[in-house]
């Protein structure tokens, strides 16, 4: 991703965003509300077009391809607000993705079964999308994305609203996926999740990337703390630290 920028009318939402993802890694994307995280996912997934800059997937430029073509390349996303097919059953939801992913016949059914098992959705196979609970819908979104055999998975807050037990299961699923070699960009507000699974963390603040590095290092940066907690809070803390109590260090 090179120098990508996006504005809506006069509002500059993203500016000069450049980064690349390492294959097989999990990258966390964090930032306060309104930082531009979902916009970034929309740009990569093709739901929105950048005003400036270029987005590449492997060596192919994707920022002007239609959404469905990007999905078929293996660059698959989920949505922050769940978007499932209400009129289709859970199984049909997943099967549809598997079909466009190129699977047919028995292979398709086996794959769908495997994914339902991984996401612990087997018991709900015949339930229409509209009748699934929110956690089930969230897992279905993930399952549907997996049926496309993703190479890069963009997960936009797939864990928001889950209880701690559900959260642990979701994290478990992501670990399994990483072991299978799926690259992931995970947007999440829950620091526990981000710290637990990310190999690398990107921090977005007011449309710019302000930090990039291993999770432990990034949360220690004062500019990241400022973005979340406010400049004065961090300054006060640093003053306190300089006055002898030690511990927190600036950048």
């Amino acid at each position: 991703m090179r120098e990508v920028g996006k504005s809506f009318g006069g509002l500059q939402v993203l500016e000069g965003i450049s980064f690349s993802l390492t294959e097989g890694s999990i990258t966390g994307l964090i930032g306060p509300n309104g930082a531009g995280k979902s916009t970034l996912v929309n740009l990569i997934g093709g739901a929105d077009r950048p005003n400036r800059g270029e987005i590449y997937f492997h060596s192919l430029r994707v920022d002007h391809l239609p959404v469905w073509r990007i999905a078929r390349l293996g660059l698959v996303r989920t949505f922050q607000v769940t978007r499932i097919f209400n009129d289709l059953t859970l199984r049909e939801n997943i099967r549809l993705a598997g079909w466009t992913g190129g699977l047919r016949g028995r292979k398709l059914e086996t794959e769908v079964d495997g994914i339902m098992q991984l996401c612990e959705l087997e018991t709900k196979a015949g339930v229409p999308g509209r009748d699934l609970s929110l956690p089930e819908q969230k897992r279905l979104q993930l399952a549907r994305a997996l049926a496309l055999k993703p190479k890069l998975l963009l997960l936009d807050e797939v864990m928001a609203g889950l209880n701690p037990a559900e959260l642990d299961r979701a994290i478990q699923i992501l670990r399994v996926l990483r072991d299978r070699g799926v690259t992931m960009l995970v947007i999440e507000h829950l620091m526990r999740v981000i710290m637990g699974i990310s190999d690398r963390v990107l921090v977005l603040h007011q449309g710019s990337l302000i930090a990039d590095g291993p999770p432990e290092q990034v949360v220690g940066l004062s500019r990241v703390q400022e973005a979340y907690l406010g400049r004065r809070y961090v300054q006060n803390r640093e003053t306190a630290a300089a006055n002898g109590s030690g511990g927190v260090s600036g950048c």
Binding site: W68, F79, R83, F85, L88, A97, R144
Partner: peptide, 25 residues
């Protein structure tokens, strides 16, 4: 048929249908 599922998916949520690789147009 699969085509019918595609149409129902478009009716439910067109952007989601595109993101699972359906050529909705």
């Amino acid at each position: 048929s699969h085509f019918g599922n595609i149409l129902l998916a478009i009716k439910s949520d067109e952007l989601a249908a595109q993101s699972v690789g359906v050529n909705t147009v």
